[in-house]
Amino acid sequence: MTMMKTARIHEYGDTSVIRHDTVARPRPASGEVLVQVAATSFNPTESALRAGLLHAFLPVDLPYTLGWDVAGTVVEIGPGTEGRAVGDRVVGRLDGGGAAAEYVRAPAALLVPAPASVPLAHAAALPVAGLTAWQAVFEHGKVTAGQRVLVNGAGGGVGGFVTQLAKHAGAEVIATAGPRSTEAVRRQGADRLIDYTAGPVGDALGSPVDTLLNLVPLSPPDAAALATLVRPGGRIVSIATPIEPAVGTGVSARHLVARNDVTHLAALVELVDAAALSIDVSESRPLADLADVHHLSESGRIRGKVLIIP
């Protein structure tokens, strides 16, 4: 029996519940492939899952192998599985987790060819954050050329993709970021930067924006203050705290929970290979450091996307 390393939780709790187990390497079933993992990437929502905060919304069977993003190479094909071949370099979002391991069994239909223009491991930063950004900008924000767009929380993994996609759509992008993220957000194409640590965003913004894309948790007063920065008839999309528009403004508001969509993921890969979208990897860490990455995230000390290498 061939064995492999994994990072799993056997119970909900703080970062100490992440265990590094050696388990049997899985075999792909019909419709599945076995992927040798080049990398997964850390998403802050996984900290909430580990802590049990998502149990009502996203129950999982324990023990549970972490890792929703995967980039790697197909090494085995399940019986009757079509569309993939051994040796394919692939990327995908695995809603059942499992990518924080040396190998993962994955539905072939959830995988797309990885971008050819970046290291394979870097592609692992794309699925969860990229899909969230795509759907925020294009599906719900309906960002188009000439609009003024405020990206609140541009320094995170999703924020980098949101900034670039809104700019790709032709919008004027105003981004909030802290001092640690300023240079990265500027490289990603923001037309204007507002340091949210220096004072209220509204004081620095000036005229209202067409669309607010909020990517960070907010207190009720801060959410209400941001809502006033959108022009009448504009749009608010939040992936974190829901934001209610001011009464009588005609502003539409959407709280976004991104869905897995391979069509959108393939479009993101095309943009990467066309050099129209960059993947900002701030750090690569070994699987053994996953608990430390969770801790750093919870203390607000992570910028961009962190790769986890098995």
Rank of each mutant, 00 (worst) to 15 (best):
D203M: 05
A224V: 02
R148S: 14
K167E: 05
S252C: 02
I239Q: 07
V143G: 10
T197M: 02
G199M: 10
L193K: 04
V158L: 14
G141M: 06
T249F: 02
V151T: 12
G206A: 09
L193R: 06
T228G: 14
A175V: 14
G233F: 04
T211D: 03
I236E: 09
V185E: 10
E244Y: 00
V201N: 11
A166P: 14
A184L: 14
R180V: 03
H140F: 15
T144M: 02
A225I: 00
G153P: 02
V237Y: 07
A240R: 05
A145V: 03
N152A: 09
I194P: 09
I174E: 06
P200W: 03
L193Y: 04
A171V: 00
A223E: 10
G202F: 00
G178L: 08
P220I: 02
T163M: 12
S238M: 07
S181A: 15
L150K: 11
G170H: 09
V143N: 07
T182D: 05
V251N: 08
E183Q: 15
R231A: 14
P217V: 03
G157K: 11
I239V: 15
R235Y: 01
E244H: 01
P217R: 08
G170K: 11
E172W: 04
A175G: 12
S238A: 15
L193T: 08
A204Q: 13
D195V: 06
L212Q: 10
S219C: 05
G155Q: 03
T176S: 08
S207A: 15
V173H: 09
G202S: 06
T197L: 06
A169C: 05
G250H: 12
G250S: 13
A223W: 00
Y196T: 00
A204G: 04
A190V: 08
H140E: 14
P217C: 05
D195L: 09
G170E: 09
A184N: 06
A227Y: 00
R192H: 08
D195H: 02
A223N: 04
G146Y: 14
V162A: 13
L212G: 07
